[in-house]
């Protein structure tokens, strides 16, 4: 059975590699549509990582929301730009250097905060229930307030979209 764990580990690192490589392609490819496809691959890699961590619900939601819905939006954005059939569009401009500097600073804080979290890996946390029913109970129980806040934000966005999109009478 050890050999299966070896396979699983190899698979995990391969997934991580593909995710990162696709993420790099998103910001380096010179065609908008190719970038969008690379983004799909990258997000898919994240979904597979969730599956590997036994968070099935999260993995499927990742596919439904990010890949399904956001890709749809992105593709419509591409359709509405006039550079539809351009072979290449430059990915960098004069602001890329300051942006890189800012990102580096952000990443320092990000990594520092990640390192500060005590990742408790013990038998209790490994056996914790992460099935969909428990998730639903948590959303409707202890976390009902943030859940409702998100709903209100979404409703506001919807109403705003309808108002912006309506034709004047």
């Amino acid at each position: 059975m050890e050999i299966l764990y070896f396979f699983a580990k190899t698979g995990f690192y391969a997934t991580a590699l593909v995710t990162l490589a696709a993420a790099i392609l998103v910001v380096t490819l010179r065609n908008l549509f190719h970038c969008a496809l690379a983004l799909i691959l990258s997000l898919l890699g994240v979904a597979v990582t969730y599956l590997y961590l036994k968070a099935e619900f999260l993995a499927i939601i990742q596919i439904l929301l990010y890949i399904g819905a956001i890709m749809t939006l992105l593709i419509f954005a591409i359709m509405l730009t006039h550079r539809l059939t351009d072979r290449s569009v430059s990915q960098t401009n004069r602001q890329s250097l300051p942006a890189f500097a800012l990102l580096a600073v952000f990443n320092i804080f990000f990594i520092a905060s990640l390192a500060a979290v005590p990742w408790k890996i013990n038998s209790a946390s490994l056996a914790a229930k992460i099935d969909t029913q428990a998730l639903g109970a948590f959303l409707m129980g202890p976390y009902v307030f943030p859940f409702e806040i998100i709903s209100i934000v979404l409703i506001i966005a919807l109403v705003g979209a309808v108002i912006l999109g309506r034709t004047d009478q």
């Binding site: 099935e56 619900f57 499927i60 596919i63 890949i67 399904g68 890709m71 099935d131 969909t132």
Partner: peptide
């Protein structure tokens, strides 16, 4: 799968991306 139904609905959206490609 614990989330079989969602899996079906989520994965089937993939087809249209390939179609658009």
């Amino acid at each position: 799968l614990n989330v079989g139904l969602l899996f079906f609905l989520g994965v089937s959206t993939f087809g249209v991306i390939a179609l658009f490609m």
